[in-house]
Amino acid sequence: MKAWFATFVVLAVCVAFTGLLAVTVWDIAQTPALVQLPAMVAEKLSESGVKNPVTAVLLNFRSYDTLLEIGVLVIAAMTGISMARTPTLEDPELRTSNELLFALQRWFVPLMLMVAGYLLWAGSDRPGGAFQAGAVLAAAGVLMRLGARPMNFLRPGILLRLGLVLGFAVFLVVALASAFAGEAFLDYPEGWTKVLIVTIEAVLTLSIGMVLLALFVAGPVNEYGEEDDPV
């Protein structure tokens, strides 16, 4: 009886929360915006070095956000890896042997790598960019991992560390260099904008793919025969 009452209270609170949120959203929708952000972005787009406005916002106008974001990703990956039980990475027990999976690996992984490259390249003037490319890269890695293909770069070591940190490090170096040499933190010097953005995007793609893949691999998988420890 008590449990039912608690459930009822929680449901009531959630309904009230939803109602409040709906009223707020309606209120905001009726109020005209004070600043016209789209117009501001469109005005400065020609100076940003890229033609896709979302990429311009991500890597130029608000690159600070992206820098912090890749920092968060690296921290998440480090936490995940510290729980990993990597010795079981190529445990034959965990290998999925499936004809379909092998065919997918053979045909899809090269295709996915190509798609990732395309998305990265397309990001400057049409939908696409580092995040999408990084996700596709990670998906290709997951496909490889499911068939337990040996991927030595995911073992603890210099390659793993380098791959995880590369995006953040390059981004940070660019930010600091622009702070010392130029006007402000992350204010790219004139003429270098496009080159810097493309470089940062490329290393971001690698690092994002690496972080997501590392987090996927990090799951402690060897519960067999070990979980009978007393609780």
């Binding site: 990429t55 998305l119 939908p127 696409g128 960019g129 999408q132 996700a135």
Partner: peptide
Amino acid sequence: APNIALAEAAIGAGLSGVL
């Protein structure tokens, strides 16, 4: 929002589903 659509298709439907 085609940019988000691409990311969502790759991440929301693909990657997190596998996870």
